[in-house]
Amino acid sequence: MSTTTLEKSAASAESEAPAHLITVTFRVRRFNPEISDQATWQDFQLEIDPKERVLDGLHKIKWDHDGTLTFRRSCAHGICGSDAMRINGKNRLACKTLIKDLNPSKPITVEPIKGLTVLKDLVVDMEPFFQAYRDVMPFLITKGNEPTRERLQTAEDRERFDDTTKCILCAACTSSCPVFWNDGQYFGPAAIVNAHRFIFDSRDEAGEQRLEILNDKDGVWRCRTTFNCTDACPRGIEVTKAIQEVKRALITRRF
């Protein structure tokens, strides 16, 4: 009979729909310079599917609970690098972190990344980060005439710097670096990774120049090999290894 099946499906939908949802507390670091000079923690209780991402939780808060919550996100799929934040004390992309992987029985803390000026809530001023990026000249530099066809490269030559091409400039590594926290003059892991990408590119001819830049007092020698950057990288780049390779290139260049 149609009515009974309707009732049944309605009943089952009612009992099943919330069954996969769990209650999660989001503890978000809020800062609004137009209200107070102090940053505070604010708790939000959400009914959410544990298979959803932290970014979905932030969306839920912004769309359904508190529209003043401010954070960056663009593609929401781990490519644009806009939504790096400190989740449960670790730098991650909110769009690549599943709630079930975070022990949702405890409050999930969400903070802005460290070492950069917090402008509002989870939004930081990325300018010093991009200044360091620009300072290593992250573009192809060649001498002589432009070839009439593409610049060819063997598969092995491409493999040499493959790892560092994966960087999405999310600043998770740089803002996890204790040296960078204390001294913003240090280039930081991300800038060195992007210099590495061109230093070890066989088509590029300005490797010497970039090595010279990174040889300076705020360059690779300030790296303390704490591996925070490698742990933080959402793309799985071996950041510390890349920094060490630049150091090795500098030493073998001298001796």
């Binding site: 137009e34 000079d37 000026t117 001023d125 300072d135 001294d183």
Partner: peptide, 11 residues
């Protein structure tokens, strides 16, 4: 607005 906290020795 309130002053924001600048990181040490900003680049």
């Amino acid at each position: 607005p309130a002053p924001v906290i600048e990181p040490p020795r900003k680049r």
